[in-house]
Write a protein that binds this DNA or RNA. Structure first.
Lengths: 351, 351
DNA sequence: TTGAAAGCGCTAACAA
DNA sequence: TTGTTAGCGCTTTCAA
């Protein structure tokens, strides 16, 4: 025997107080006598009252909704590919659970960044949902069209994986340090000719990672010329092309730092095709640490991004912002991990 | 300080008509003169008007929200495990995109099925969101506590992977046929002692798959005694235990049908530990076809579930239902695929 | 074919 | 510390 819908009115009647008092109680506002608070809470429990999100949004200023914006093409491609990604899963793990803790919901939304109508798409989502905050995933946080729009609309937002100053909360790992750590890992293993495959230029972190590699090479007193750098775009194909040229020629590299797992996997294939042993002849280390790193042969050593932690932090900051863009956009830097697996090893004595 | 928003009022003023007329236009209702319709649409386009979901829910009966209910523990475990799942991703792929097509949103929600408060958790989500429909994922569709609750609350729901008659739309693949196909695949390869590892009893499909195996064995004129059946619960550990006993003893099996990938992977490990070649000494076939099947060594032959298609169909049916539980709960049966990889092969001559 | 009025369930601003 | 009064932006009667 279930009621049709229990509203704040029913609770007020049951507790013998006004609507406003009930509202205060469910919003944990001060200025409610303990005795009254108790009565209202009892009524809420008895009737199984849960406030309607839609009504709260209508009356007040908050919607209790956080919007997570992801790149449509890339996400769908990931879902349809055989490889499996866990970017989305980790986002949900971190973001959804944090939202749930605070009575918020996270709505996952795909937007087509490349189309001329990014602004329209995002504006529409905002008009429709009136989210209290927006989580921007790479490379959206680096897209001024988007960040400017959100600033103008005064919707608080968090940029995941975007370290720039700018508006909105910046939540990222230290990409340069991570690339340096990856490079250093190889240096420690005795490598001196360490190639680097960049990610797409669209991502600011692509440049930052390259800088990290340069820094580590310099610190180790190694040459870091352009002959060791290849431009990739995160795709398998670009990784393969990059690896091809790095391992051929008069001065082949003995190790490669790839800016993501797909490109590292491509390097692995190239090595196999050429009869190069991994890590015997070629060490490979990558960024992201998606599931494929664990199942490739050999498993890939990789830099793991704290995606869940970043999403969680983003949600937290946005919820704290209570719908108002923060004046002081703080930057959170979360720790990365270097997961050593079997694709990296000591350089050959005859290297 | 409220955020500037274009409302139906502005559109009405711009087009010189009443609110109702605008409402009719955006809801594609009849009885609007073409000329007026055009004027309103022009105003909508000019002002960039997008109706507010919250307001639509408040005024009318629909919320434009579809709730996807997933098992909390299992989902979080999948996210946290190293393996990577793609159940959630495929759900989003199918469900979200279909919802988006119709101006709906899909909200992904985790519920703790095992706790005594399932009813409270689900009732709360419904009270809060007033979804127009709910997608139940396994094993929720087989849980009478949940299906009865939703029936009582008159919220339309779709059961994914649940074939029973009952209330709500049933959307599933033919589990028995799939298990039979998997078994048959092995029979064709010359196997006669084919073991079967079941899934958790909590899932109705566990029983159905077992029946499919029995059917195929019988059809092939093979013995299908209980000595060939082991009870698993979808975990790696249970799969390992099951495989252990199937490959040992006086009459070891030459092939195993495992009810999910994790258990198949466990069987693979058991084979390796015992020095059994796969598929030379032991063929393994599994259900689900998550990413791990593609990266294990050898890659696993598996039955792929049409998860995205099922989620898409579920969303479609619920949207069509327009918030009213359908009288005739139709059942959709979607096709599965057998993906042949390297873990199954001909039985040894001396087998 | 159109429009006017009455809410939906809640919160913000103000009174008491 | 509590209650009262307006709306929020839409859809749903119902009337014209």
């Amino acid at each position: 025997m279930r009621r049709q819908t229990v509203t704040i009115k029913h609770v007020a009647a049951e507790a013998g107080v006004s609507l406003q008092t009930v509202s205060r109680v469910i919003n944990k506002e001060p200025h409610v006598r303990p005795a009254v608070l108790e009565r209202v809470e009892a009524a809420v429990a008895k009737l199984g009252y849960v406030p309607s999100l839609a009504a709260r949004r209508m009356g007040g200023s908050r919607s209790y909704l956080i919007l997570a914006l992801n790149d449509r093409d890339r996400t769908i491609e990931g879902w349809q590919s055989d490889g499996g990604t866990d970017w989305v899963d980790q986002m949900l793990l971190g973001g959804m659970l944090k939202c749930a803790e605070h009575g918020y919901r996270m709505i996952f939304e795909l937007v087509d960044t490349h189309a001329a109508h990014v602004e329209r798409e995002i504006s529409a989502a905002i008009s429709s949902l009136h989210p209290d905050g927006i989580i921007l995933t790479p490379p959206h946080g680096d897209n001024p069209v988007i960040t400017d729009l959100l600033t103008r609309l005064r919707v608080p937002f968090a940029r995941i994986g975007s370290a720039g100053e700018g508006a909105g909360f910046s939540i990222a790992m230290d990409e340069a340090a991570a690339a340096a750590a990856a490079t250093d890992h190889l240096v420690q293993l005795g490598h001196s000719r360490i190639g680097f495959v960049t990610g797409s230029d669209e991502y600011a972190l692509s440049v930052t990672r390259l800088e990290g590699w340069r820094r580590a090479m310099a610190a180790a007193g190694l040459a870091a010329g352009d002959d060791l750098v290849r431009h990739g775009d995160f795709t398998f194909r670009s990784g393969a092309a990059a690896a091809e040229t790095l391992v051929s020629g008069p001065q082949p590299v003995t190790a490669i730092v790839a800016s993501n797992d797909q490109m590292a996997l491509a390097a692995l294939h190239v090595a196999q095709d050429r009869g190069l042993a991994v890590p015997g002849d070629l060490s490979i280390i990558s960024f992201d640490d998606t599931p494929i790193t664990r199942f490739s042969v050999p498993p890939l050593t990789a830099i793991a991004q704290p995606i869940a932690a970043m999403a969680s932090r983003a949600a937290e900051l946005l919820i704290e912002a209570r719908g108002q863009p923060a004046e002081t956009a703080e930057a959170s830097v979360l720790p990365f991990r270097l997961v050593a697996r079997a694709s990296t090893g000591p350089v050959r004595a005859d290297g």
